[in-house]
Write a protein that binds this DNA or RNA. Structure first.
Length: 268
DNA sequence: CTCCAGGGTTTGC
DNA sequence: GCAAACCATGGA
């Protein structure tokens, strides 16, 4: 274990529980995050100091980008002329970071997410990881990687249904076959403009406007994008009188969306 | 038992 | 083009 200093916005509970990642959890009083082949255990030891389980190198190369640490969030939070509801949301959600996660994981995760509760999403993903991912031995436990398209090459729709995927099983199956057929599908589009990337991603069955926006925001760093789910719908229609408060926010829109989502599911 | 969950696709007008 | 119907499953 080594110690690092983070002076940016950085609240591990909020990062792990704002509906953007579904495999983060607490283990032995550490927050645990997984990305690709990497597992991180991390806990705060002071206002700005954190104990981490990885090397300095891995922190810089993998986890810094993952936690979007190059970006300053506090100037965004102090942005003027915010809608009153967003001011409340920011106050509540300060410390959130929009993670940069694996595109393939985001594709499957948010196809699965449709009409499922957050615990149900996490449960289905964990079943897939334990069944088709690869084990990693850590000091505390065995963690399973998120299965790649190759890991899933021989999986049938019926196999998928056993992970509580229901009617989404054909969507997942199609996405697997698409990636096996076109392995570059999720890398060839990294330089596309937002609207073109949107169209590109919606070629995947089960990926519509909302899921495509989630993939763009959470995997490709497209922070102009605002996924509109049932909660953000309520923000617009109930809290903001039908006027979308995010559209005016440019590159910060997606980040404010995340503050709003966290506020909606945590208040009361 | 009923209702709903970070929606998308298909169908009917 | 648009709204409604339909989709599996788990949890409250």
């Amino acid at each position: 274990m080594i110690t690092i200093t983070i002076t940016n916005d950085f609240d591990l509970y909020k990062i792990a529980n704002c509906g953007q990642c579904f495999r983060a959890t607490m283990v032995n009083n550490y927050h645990r995050f997984i990305t690709g082949q990497h597992v991180l255990y991390i806990r705060p030891i002071s206002e700005t100091e954190y104990e981490i389980s990885c090397t300095d190198q891995e922190w810089t190369d993998i986890w810094g980008p993952y936690f979007d640490l190059h970006r300053e969030y506090s100037p965004l939070r102090r942005k003027r002329k915010l809608h009153p509801f967003l001011k409340e949301a920011v106050q509540c959600g300060a410390g959130i970071r929009v993670l940069k996660q694996e595109p393939w994981e985001m594709v499957l995760t948010f196809i699965i997410s449709q009409r499922k509760s957050i615990p149900a999403i996490a449960s289905a993903i964990e079943m897939m990881c334990q069944r088709w991912g690869h084990p990693i031995q850590t000091p505390f436990e065995i963690v399973y990687t998120f299965p790649t398209p190759s890991d899933l090459a021989d999986v049938t729709e019926d196999d998928l249904r056993e992970c509580s995927l229901g009617y989404r099983a054909p969507y997942i199956y199609h996405a697997i076959q698409l990636l096996l057929d076109r392995p570059n599908f999720l890398t060839e589009c990294t330089t596309y403009r937002d609207d073109k990337l949107d169209t590109h991603l919606q070629q995947i069955k089960g990926v519509g406007a909302k899921v495509a926006n989630c993939i763009m925001l959470f995997a490709y760093g497209r922070t102009k994008r605002v996924p509109i789910d049932t909660w953000i719908e309520k923000v617009i229609n109930v809290e903001c009188n039908g006027i979308n408060p995010f559209e005016r926010l440019g590159n910060a829109a997606g980040i404010f969306q995340q503050y709003a989502f966290y506020y909606m599911i945590h208040r009361k």
